[in-house]
């Protein structure tokens, strides 16, 4: 009983309960015929949200006002530039990966420079830079859709031991993120800054170093997700990151990370990403139109948040 109670107190449990519930309902509707396909699709598509969500999670944990709005444009830029440089050539994959990382590092440093030098709220700084990044991608791309190298296209669409390769990658990144957050000094520093930046500074936390590292980490993960997504979907598209603007924030928050900062949660990102994908596929299975699907997605998101929230004055505020 105590164990169950301890489990229910975990902020991430709700996203898994919700995801499992939606999964069951969908499976029941199709009488079990789609079990394997649905699970694989969910893991594949959730993987992309998980990778960008982890970066957004660290940024949001830095405290109020910290949100990275440049994730979609970074994804697009990394995907376009890497695919164009590799030019379907299997031998240039290493170059593509290096360029992807370079795009991420550049964007992250650029974002933090704006935040620090101009003292712009991060949400506006990343919004402004996203316009510039998006323009760079448009200018570089010239409307040409280049296919990914065959090896990469096969790798991102294939499975190992029944689990999609991209999900394995997301798992590896999540484990690193979890270790960084729960076992490393970096995670303590990020949480400390999110709880009280002044106190963290006085306690000797290298605030600027940690913040710049966080924005770089977020941009690198976004670039990586963009790279994988463009390989997975057979080429980069200028609008391919668009849906990840809201998704990256939604998975962080539904996953139990505090929006006000200071408290992050890695497992919740998995639950929330699977949940969001499963909701859409459940509604698809029931044959809902695009409008109904959007409407119900919103209603379900709000319902989950309200269910997981505490009443005013009840316990400490973690929301």
């Amino acid at each position: 009983m105590a164990a169950i109670k301890a489990m229910l107190a975990k902020p991430w449990i709700w996203s898994f309960v919700a995801a499992a519930g939606v999964w069951m309902v969908t499976i029941l509707f199709t009488a079990g015929a789609s079990t394997l396909g649905l699970t694989q699709a969910a893991l594949t598509f959730a993987a992309f949200s998980i990778i960008v969500g982890l970066g957004q999670m660290f940024v949001i944990t830095l405290g109020p006002g910290n949100v990275d709005l440049s994730i979609p444009s970074t994804m697009t830029l990394a995907g376009t530039v890497a695919l164009k440089l590799m030019d379907t050539n299997n031998g240039l994959i290493a170059v593509g990966i290096l360029v992807t990382l370079a795009v991420g590092v550049t964007v992250g440093i650029g974002n933090y420079t704006l935040i620090k030098l101009l003292r712009i709220p991060p949400i506006i700084a990343t919004l402004s830079s996203s316009f510039i990044i998006q323009s760079t991608a448009i200018w570089y791309n010239r409307g040409i859709r280049i296919k990914p190298p065959r090896v990469l296209a096969e790798f991102t669409t294939a499975s190992t031991l029944g689990i999609p390769n991209v999900a394995w990658l997301a798992l590896a990144i999540s484990i690193v993120a979890w270790v960084l957050l729960e076992r490393g000094i970096y995670g303590r520093w990020v949480s400390a800054i999110g709880q009280n930046m002044r106190a963290a500074r006085l306690a000797g936390v290298p605030v600027d170093g940690v913040r710049v590292a966080t924005y770089v980490l977020c941009a690198v993960l976004a670039a990586l997700a963009g790279f994988l997504l463009s390989c997975f979907s057979g080429g980069a598209a200028l609008n391919m990151g668009a849906e990840y603007l809201l998704t990256s924030i939604a998975v962080v928050v539904i996953g139990g990370t505090a929006v006000a900062g200071g408290f992050a949660n890695v497992p919740g990102i998995w639950g929330a990403s699977l949940f969001l994908f499963l909701v859409v596929s459940m509604l698809n299975t029931y044959g809902a139109s695009a409008g109904v699907r959007l409407f119900l997605t919103g209603v379900i998101i709000i319902a989950v948040i309200i269910a997981a929230s505490r009443r005013l004055g009840e316990g400490s505020s973690t929301s």
Partner: peptide, 23 residues
């Protein structure tokens, strides 16, 4: 009353309004 973050609730509402507009 539920001490919710406004960003998240309005994020959910953006799907609701978007869906209604498409309908």
């Amino acid at each position: 009353l539920r001490n919710l973050p406004a960003i998240v609730v309005t994020l959910g509402m953006s799907f609701v309004w978007g869906g209604l507009a498409v309908l």
